[in-house]
Structures are given as structure tokens and as C-alpha cells.
């Protein structure tokens, strides 16, 4: 392949309404999305075949914001949209996209580059739909970052499979069962990376799923970049450190666009020639399973590996494991 490797940027946007409400004085969500759109446009402008996916990590669920399955349309339309996405790999996505854009979004600025506008309309409508369907009782201070990361990984996996099998995509059925052995995936052709825009902390309850996704990223050499707008999370620091991603905690959230452009725009291959911003002190301490306290020296159960702060504590984690296992033994 002579063309430069295309890079797939998967953005995970933390859309926790609580956290964004707190941020409103400095960086309202609308401004953040506007900045993000400029960043996405810059990414797409870099290379004709660059791709982007945006996933919302909402309070209790994760959802694709772009690309979205068009559920109200007939399946035929859905299929063609996805064939368009498949054609994207050949580099002629712009034409397909622009056709779609002219069909769906009417009355837009003629000076607006159509692929950019296409993403903008889809993203904005998906976000407004997401907030409309949020019920007040589902509002928690947490965010389902593990689900979003898992979705991002499955999407990246599918894209790299689709790319490695250069077979033609004639019908829906063909695109679906494109022959692909997991061992035959050539990740060299696709340059995936994940960017998390995080605004909320407290992820202790998703510890194991998050760690699973981090190890998957490590194995697939997908860097996880963290743009920490607010809050603080130990796990995300470990995620970026383990996958050789960039971790930036914003000191001035108002300048989000500049952070994005300077810190996160270069892809994996060009980062080799740059000096990336790195977090010096990474907190590797484990959280104990009984108190969720972060400990320096702990006691680890040799069977279930949960760490405990002291011997006198109730081994809650251990008990729950045993209880769940009981019917099988």
C-alpha cells in the first residue's frame, strides 16, 4: 500500500450532565463540542482517508454518537450508509458522504465542506437525542467509561478486520462475514487511537472492566490519550501510561482547543518525531477492595488477588467470590 496509513481516531466524550454543569462557568458543553468539532475537522483534513468515531460515555450507558445506526430508516438505507463507510477505506468516502449530506441536511452553508458538515449534523443531533432520553433518576456522578472503551475497541477491531480483508463489499452479507482470522489482522495498515475527554472522577466500581480494556489496548498497541478537563482519576492515568498514550490535565479548560490541537492531533506514527507531553508521577497504588482506599502496602489474597488494607477487615470481596462460586462447585 503506497498511501500513508490511515488513522482511526475514536473519541470518547464523557457526557455526564453533573460534571458539565459544574464546568459551565469556564467551559460549557456547547463550547467544548464546538472545539471538538474543529479538532475532528483538523484530523480529517490531515489525510483523506482518516476516520473518526465518537462515543458518548453517559451516566449509566455508552452510546455511539458517530457513526450512528439510522434506526428510523429502512434497512436498505442503513446498509448503503454502511457501504459508504466501507468505501471510505478506498479513499473515495468524500464523494459518498457528500451525496448523503446533500440528501439529508438541507439549507446549510454552501461554503461548509460537506464531510465536516455531515459529521457536525449527525453529532449534534445524536447529542441532543442523548440528553433528551436521559431521565432524571439515572443521573449519577459516575460515567460508564468501561462500556465506552469496550465499544471503542470492538469498533476498532471491526474496522481493522474490514481493512485487512481487501475483498470487495458487494452485499450486506458479504461485508458481514468477511473472512478474517484474528491472527491475520494486520494492524499496521490501520492506525487506531483512543482519546478520552474526561470530566468526572470516581471510577472505582468499574475497576476490573477498565483494566481489561487497558490490557486489550496494550496488546493491540492502541494508545489511550486522556484529556482530563476536570476531576481526577487514578485509573485513567494508569491507562495512558500503560498504553503509551498522552495524559494532559487541563489547567485552563477554556483553552481546550489549543490543548487538543497541540497535544492530541499527531497520530502514532508522527509522535515518534515529537516530544509528547508526559505525566511524570503516575500513581500506581492499588485500591483496596474493602474500603476503596488507595494503599501503599496491602495484603493480597493468594486466591482471588484482592488487596486489603489490614488483616482485621472483613474480607468482603473474597466472600462475594465464594458465594457466587458455590453453586458450581
Amino acid at each position: 500500500m503506497n498511501a500513508p496509513p490511515l488513522s482511526l481516531l475514536t473519541i470518547i466524550l464523557d457526557t455526564n450532565p453533573h460534571a458539565w454543569a459544574l464546568l459551565t462557568p469556564t467551559l460549557p458543553l456547547s463550547a467544548a463540542i464546538a472545539n471538538l468539532l474543529v479538532f475532528i475537522n483538523a484530523h480529517l483534513a490531515f489525510n483523506n482517508s482518516n476516520k473518526v468515531a465518537i462515543i458518548a460515555s453517559h451516566t449509566q450507558r455508552a452510546e455511539f454518537l458517530y457513526p450512528v445506526p439510522s434506526q428510523d430508516d429502512s434497512l436498505q438505507a442503513n446498509g448503503s450508509a454502511h457501504n459508504g463507510a466501507q468505501n471510505d477505506l478506498d479513499g473515495d468516502a468524500k464523494m459518498v458522504d457528500s451525496d448523503e449530506g446533500s440528501g439529508t441536511a438541507a439549507g446549510d452553508d454552501a461554503n461548509h465542506y460537506r464531510p465536516f458538515r455531515h459529521i457536525q449534523t449527525i453529532l449534534l443531533s445524536a447529542i441532543s437525542k442523548l440528553y433528551k432520553t436521559t431521565s432524571s433518576e439515572s443521573l449519577t456522578p459516575t460515567t460508564s467509561i468501561a462500556g465506552a472503551l469496550t465499544l471503542a475497541l470492538t469498533y476498532i477491531n471491526k474496522q481493522s478486520i474490514a481493512l485487512s480483508t481487501t475483498t470487495s463489499s458487494k452485499t450486506n452479507a458479504d461485508t458481514f462475514v468477511a473472512p478474517s482470522d484474528p491472527n491475520l489482522i494486520q494492524p499496521a495498515t490501520l492506525n487506531p487511537r483512543i482519546l478520552i475527554l474526561s470530566v468526572s472522577g470516581d471510577l472505582a466500581h468499574q475497576y476490573i472492566p477498565i483494566m481489561n480494556t487497558i490490557f486489550a489496548c496494550q496488546r493491540l498497541t492502541i494508545p489511550i490519550d486522556i484529556c482530563k478537563i476536570a476531576g481526577d482519576s487514578v485509573f485513567l492515568q494508569q491507562a495512558s501510561d500503560a498504553t503509551h498514550g498522552t495524559y494532559i490535565a487541563l489547567t485552563h479548560p477554556r483553552g481546550l482547543l489549543q490543548y487538543l490541537m497541540l497535544g492530541f492531533l499527531p497520530d502514532q506514527s508522527s509522535r515518534k518525531y515529537l516530544v509528547p507531553p508526559t505525566a511524570v508521577g503516575v500513581d500506581f497504588r492499588a485500591a483496596c477492595f474493602c474500603h476503596r482506599k488507595v494503599v501503599d502496602v496491602g495484603f493480597v489474597c493468594s486466591i482471588c488477588l484482592s488487596s486489603k488494607s489490614g488483616l482485621s477487615t472483613v474480607l468482603c470481596w473474597n466472600y462475594s467470590v465464594r458465594r457466587r462460586k458455590a453453586p458450581h462447585v
Partner: peptide, 27 residues
């Protein structure tokens, strides 16, 4: 899920994308 996601979720990630992004899973 499709077969690719099935293989990927069981062999690499060890997470179910659906279960992790479901309403109420956190509670």
C-alpha cells in the same frame, strides 16, 4: 453481536460491550 465482536470480546477484552454500557449496570 456479530461473530467478530464475539471472538474479540471473549479472547481479547474479556468484557461484554452490552453489559458494560447498560442502564443501571453501575448501581
Amino acid at each position: 453481536f456479530c461473530i467478530d465482536c464475539d471472538v474479540f470480546a471473549h479472547e481479547v477484552v474479556h468484557n461484554c460491550p452490552g453489559c458494560q454500557s447498560r442502564e443501571g449496570v453501575l448501581s
